[in-house]
Design a protein around this nucleic acid. Structure first.
Lengths: 139, 139
DNA sequence: CCCATTTGTTAATCTACATGAATGCAAAAT
DNA sequence: ATTTTGCATTCATGTAGATTAACAAATGGG
């Protein structure tokens, strides 16, 4: 079981899947002080890939729960919180609101990654994001 | 902080949000042996409501992490896993595939709740689910 | 049993977003 | 300098699913 947890000291990571049609979907970004894991659970794998979008310093932690249990639980809860919000927004909010929420969640990432990746995170095409940004700028 | 965790012994719970337009979105179901929590984190509340869809026996656990820490972590990880899958499917899979995945995740729930709730879980309207089921039956 | 309310179905129309293609543009690569 | 290569923009068209509405079926309470 080669599943790992990474603590980002500096730089920027992303995790993403590739669906049957070959399209990739960014699952999350991890800038400084975020943690990121590939397969949270060894069974029922999720095929989550991770790579660095910037030169990054990361600390690789073994998932063996050794010392700071409470701390780990807090981190996990934080992630659940983010995921819940994301599910709800995907179900109920149109792309433009998801984009605005993205800007709040990751205030400075917009400048740091190409737009196509943000589109991938939002679950829309780069073209859709482009026109959507046009509309925002126009008003 | 009145946030609780519930362990379902028998019956069926659901958790859901209500968006600004008054529409509700079922976040998850919890049949026997599942756990369910309302606000995972006291800050940044998510306005997740819980109620029982069947007569249910539940054990209310305080969220204070008392004894079985490892066990709690396993549960949390399971939830993250489910959430991740859900996010990915919402982004990449059409409603019909989400419906099929739902049937795998909750094999017998289809019979136990009204369709409108399943639609809510899937993030589509009851009408859409109805026609979608028609198409499945027809082939 | 009858009425009222909720739930499911079907169909017409509308809209957000996907898809595909053409164009411009900047950064690499040669 | 020139040729790639990848990214962003714009437009035309297609489509999944929303919306609205009307009706049928089921459920529940008196």
């Amino acid at each position: 079981m080669n599943s790992k947890v990474y603590q980002v000291e500096s730089g920027l990571l992303r995790s993403y899947t590739i669906d049957e049609k070959g399209k990739d979907h960014i699952f999350m970004f991890a800038p400084e002080n975020w943690i990121m894991a590939d397969n949270v659970s060894p069974d029922q794998p999720c095929d989550l890939f991770i790579d660095a979008l910037e030169d990054s310093i990361i600390i690789q932690k073994t998932k063996a729960i050794d010392s700071d249990l409470e701390h780990d639980i807090q981190k996990l809860i934080k992630r659940i919180e983010v995921l819940q919000k994301r599910v709800i927004m995907l179900m109920s909010a149109p792309a433009i609101e998801r984009y605005e929420h993205f800007n709040q969640t990751y205030p400075d990432i917009v400048q740091r990654v190409p737009q196509k990746m943000i589109a991938s995170y939002l679950g829309i095409t780069p073209q859709a994001l482009s026109t959507l940004r046009g509309e925002i700028a126009r008003k």
